[in-house]
């Protein structure tokens, strides 16, 4: 099974394998710009109280993303 950013537990650190094309095109472009490129490390910090979105630390800054989009990012 392919592991995506959506499945990562808080406290885990993972590496981006591929950003799939299945989601919103503009958002993908935006996230690429924020550093969601292959080989980048992501540290998942927290899930919001209602279970979505997810907070993560990437390249030294904290970003939150909805699970719908996190699902398109393949990680190991």
């Amino acid at each position: 099974m392919v592991k995506t950013l959506k499945d990562v537990k808080p406290g885990e650190t993972v590496t981006i394998v591929k950003y799939h094309h299945s989601g919103d095109v503009e958002l993908r472009r935006h996230l690429l710009g924020m550093g969601f490129v292959k080989g980048t490390k992501i540290h998942v910090k927290k899930v919001a109280p209602f279970g979505d979105p997810i907070e993560m630390s990437i390249r030294g800054c904290d970003i939150c993303l909805r699970k719908d989009e996190a699902e398109n990012i393949e990680v190991i």
Binding site: E26, L31, P53, E55, C64
Partner: peptide
């Protein structure tokens, strides 16, 4: 609009 937000 997608939800990508920096937590400063």
């Amino acid at each position: 609009a997608p939800f990508v937000m920096e937590l400063p």
